[in-house]
Design a protein around this nucleic acid. Structure first.
Lengths: 208, 208
DNA sequence: TTTTATTTTGATCATTTGATTGAAATCATT
DNA sequence: AATGATTTCAATCAAATGATCAAAATAAAA
């Protein structure tokens, strides 16, 4: 009976359920799982506390759903770029950086959110991440690139870490960075936009 | 009376107080403030729950102390490097990277810990960070460097972000990274050691 | 040893928090 | 309008949690 209700709710009245989910996303990403109170979500959504359990059974289930959706969206969109047969390696790097920066400008809380859970409950993510495809076109391109220049024996892990580090880290550390450099939101975003061009350039240099 | 007790405790019996603090550091850095239960700390320390309040008055006070110490250590050690009058700009960069990587290998939980609080309670950090000196010798060196090559008009913020991003991010994302790249602890540390040489090299290239 | 101060503990309190429940309100169907 | 299903809410529960307190254990001082 509960399951029946739940299913129907998902189909028929997506509105309030979606509102709760959105509210939860905001609160979770801002405060993390542990610091979030179901009452915070209720208040943020404008609905009664009971409704979050009515629609999602528990705080944890609600969280899992949001987490999964975020991750799904994240991975899926990037996977498309990485598997594109019509772009070069360099173009892919450029696109990834731009894609990440645009995404992070809209959802600056995401990296912290993900990292938080990676730290506190790694098991959950482990399973999901392992599911990722390992035959993306970029892998083939990378291997060809390495073969074409055997003199540079750089571990691709370094490039991977640098790309992500230079792109994602500024957002992770944004509050401290902005403070230290004396930047407001707009200036920070502008700086990140500059990096869309710069990071691919730097990475290219590293690969030479 | 409470204050008297407290003070004496600090001086006379540093042992159990220190043990509790160490236990708290472990638990806090691993689970974050919100997810940490005072009972976890008690158990981890091997002492009774009441003792954590006896010595530190409250969970929050205990946390603040630990946080402040971590940050103090972090900032102080780096400040010394940055203010050294006997090293070049390049040497400073090399030292900073090595210093950070060594420190992070020992305390991989620190960045997450700091970031967690930056996200949830920025006000607390704001005050402390503002206290940092702004007249370090490296600032002078940097300005001279910029003046010596006016053609490269690169915002130093980018270098700063890259340096930290490439150095710190791998540790922040370590669980995911290790998983994705299929590395165990030792391999990860070895990779980070490689980066001690590589990152200064890459940064130097960027500055050219 | 006796007395006093300090440290440690077990029991307990008050609040917070996730979850449930039964009734009210709203909506859909006839 | 009447009936039944669905959605929403106020009230409440049970467990968890930070904190307190008085008593016991231990150490220090006399």
């Amino acid at each position: 009976m509960a399951a029946k209700k739940e299913n129907k709710a998902v189909e028929k009245n997506a509105s309030t359920e979606e509102k709760i989910k959105d509210a939860a996303k905001r609160v979770f990403t801002q405060k993390g799982y542990a610091a979030t109170r179901t009452r915070d979500i209720a208040e943020e959504s404008g609905y009664n506390l009971s409704l979050i359990n009515y629609y999602f059974r528990s705080k944890e289930k609600l969280f899992d759903i949001i987490m999964m959706e975020q991750l799904q969206m994240f991975i899926h969109s990037v996977t498309d770029l990485l598997d594109d047969h019509n772009t070069t390696l360099q173009e892919k790097i450029t696109q990834i950086v731009a894609h990440y920066i645009d995404m992070l400008k809209k959802n600056p809380g995401v990296p912290f959110f993900v990292m938080n859970e990676v730290n506190t409950a790694p098991e959950k993510l482990v399973a999901r991440i392992k599911l990722q495809r390992n035959d993306l076109y970029i892998v083939k391109q990378w291997m060809e690139f390495v073969k074409s220049r055997p003199q540079t024996a750089l571990n691709p892990a370094h490039i991977f870490l640098n790309l992500l580090g230079m792109t994602v880290f500024p957002f992770v550390a944004a509050p401290m960075i902005s403070l230290r450099l004396g930047l407001d939101q707009q200036q920070f975003d502008a700086l990140m936009d500059e990096r869309k061009k710069l990071i691919p350039m730097w990475v290219a240099e590293m690969m030479n």
